[in-house]
Amino acid sequence: MSSLAAEPIITLDEVSRVYDLGKVQVPALNDVTLNVANGEFLAIVGPSGSGKSTMMNILGCLDRPTSGRYVLDGQPVDELDDDGLALVRSRSIGFVFQSYNLLPRTSALENVATPLMYQGVGRKERLRRAQSALERLGLGDRLHHIPSELSGGQQQRVGIARALVTEPALILADEPTGNLDSHSGAEVLELFGDLHALGRTIVLITHDGAVAAAADRAVHLRDGQIQEAVRE
């Protein structure tokens, strides 16, 4: 564990995010300091309103902290402009969403290939890589199905394939089992366990302690602050 701690993939240093609603300032994250080691499987657990979504947006480089430092994969990202953040998302982050967020009317294959398109990978190469990612997740016979033709569990697996296809440093999952029945949910968590075993760094954000139990470590978020760190 010490070797992993020596090379953190995420460093949050006193990160705060305050929403400016004109007359009132709403703090959503308050001086959060957190390290995630390379290859770690971390759960961030908290009830709604705890700042989970803000945490996800900051970690996912969709939003910038109001103050504090954020270093992802060796790169300070708190000062990057929109294009810079887009580049970090493209190269270093794979998102898995609660509601899958697949492109509608677009085949599983094209969905998984799309992140590679934004990296400038040629069409043949990206379709090849997308196909192999889908095959690894057991969707080899669903390549040309569009999302509405797939079950929730299958859609989420397409989503995971899309997150994996760019080989990102970080996989960021936001309530990945929230829309799934318990069987499919368990399958998805098992999948994360397998990915973790292969050395992937995974941050899973959830309100569900049972889901968080799949992770190595869980941190609890309440009122925008980290409450405790639990190591299993």
């Binding site: 887009a86 493209s90 899309r162």
Partner: peptide, 16 residues
Amino acid sequence: TREIGIRKAIGARGRD
């Protein structure tokens, strides 16, 4: 709008 959000999340820049 949502599609645009998804595309941005998975790496599209404003100019894309």
